[in-house]
Amino acid sequence: MRANTLIMIVLAGVFGVLAVVLVNIWLAGQRSAMAQTGIVQASTVVVAAIPLKFGDTLSADTLREVAWPAGSIPTGAFKTTKEALAGEGTRQALQTISANEPVLASKITGPGQRATLSAVLGEGMKAVSIRVNDVLGVAGFVFPGDRVDVLLTRTVRGDDGADKSFVDVLLQSMKVLAIDQVADVSKDSPTVVKSVTLEA
């Protein structure tokens, strides 16, 4: 091996080690600067301590507070367990809340309310039930929380005496509140039902 080649290999190794050391020093400096300036201001958010399902009662045992970046707190979140449980009476879950998922005001009832159909209705909305069968109910694949269109199929006799069928879209993107007597949005097994309750 020639001397020039050997010198180049040694220099490449020295410069490689020097580059790694300098990058590590720079990264350590950046970490300490971020920690000192307090760029990430911490707050707290109430999350579910255990998985909650429709109708579960909230308590100090089922909730806990976790650190959360102050600039990204979800809308409707509670900062303390006391705030989440405030008011006269208990609160219940209106939908499935996974463990460590933030508890939002839209996912639970108000103080003293029960997890009933009226608790999931939007402001100024009404619940309307319609009769369905295995075909109209999409073979049981419609669940609470889904959105559906309501269609009217009608037959009109023409001037020539022949019947003509028409389908009109009456309502679009209607929220399904319940199927039969089940309003739990975590339900995921297809069931042929006799009625579907919609928010209108």
Rank of each mutant, 00 (worst) to 15 (best):
Q30W: 02
K82E: 15
N100E: 15
F54S: 00
S173R: 07
V120I: 15
P69D: 05
R31G: 04
A42L: 13
L136C: 03
V142G: 02
R114F: 09
I9H: 07
F15V: 12
V192G: 02
D146N: 04
A139M: 07
K164H: 14
V150R: 07
G112M: 09
L170V: 14
A35D: 06
G110S: 14
R154L: 13
A3M: 10
T81H: 03
P102Y: 01
V138Q: 05
R157C: 13
S186K: 08
P102D: 01
L6K: 12
S106K: 01
E123P: 08
R114Q: 12
I7E: 13
D61A: 12
V167I: 15
A35S: 05
F143N: 04
V20S: 12
I7M: 09
S165E: 13
P111L: 10
R147P: 03
P144Y: 04
A48T: 06
V20K: 09
W68Q: 07
E88H: 10
R31S: 07
L121F: 08
I50D: 07
G13Y: 08
P144W: 03
A48E: 11
N100I: 07
D184A: 10
T109W: 03
T57S: 02
V10P: 01
D163S: 14
G87N: 12
V17W: 14
S32C: 00
G158C: 14
V142Y: 02
P144C: 05
V17C: 13
T80M: 10
S72Q: 08
S129D: 02
P74C: 06
S32K: 07
V150L: 15
L177I: 03
W26N: 08
K175P: 00
D61K: 07
L11V: 11
A28D: 09
Q30C: 03
M1F: 05
S118Y: 09
K194R: 14
N24K: 15
N133L: 09
A48Y: 07
V150G: 03
K79R: 15
M125N: 04
L152Q: 13
V46Q: 02
L121E: 10
T62A: 06
V192T: 11
F78I: 01
P111S: 11
A28F: 01
R157L: 14
W68D: 06
P69R: 06
S173I: 01
S118A: 14
Q113P: 03
A115C: 09
M174L: 05
K107S: 04
P74W: 04
A60S: 11
I25F: 12
A200P: 00
G76Q: 02
T75G: 10
G13D: 11
D180Q: 11
T109L: 06
D160K: 15
P69V: 12
V135S: 05
E123G: 06
F15S: 13
K194P: 09
G140H: 08
L117H: 11
L63M: 04
D134H: 08
V196D: 03
T96P: 04
S32H: 04
D184F: 04
K82C: 02
E83A: 15
T96Q: 00
S165D: 12
V103A: 00
T5S: 13
G158S: 15
G161P: 10
W68S: 06
R31C: 00
Q181V: 01
D160V: 14
V193S: 15
Q92L: 06
I9E: 10
I50A: 13
T57C: 02
A115M: 08
S173P: 00
T116D: 15
E65N: 03
R147D: 00
E199I: 00
D168A: 12
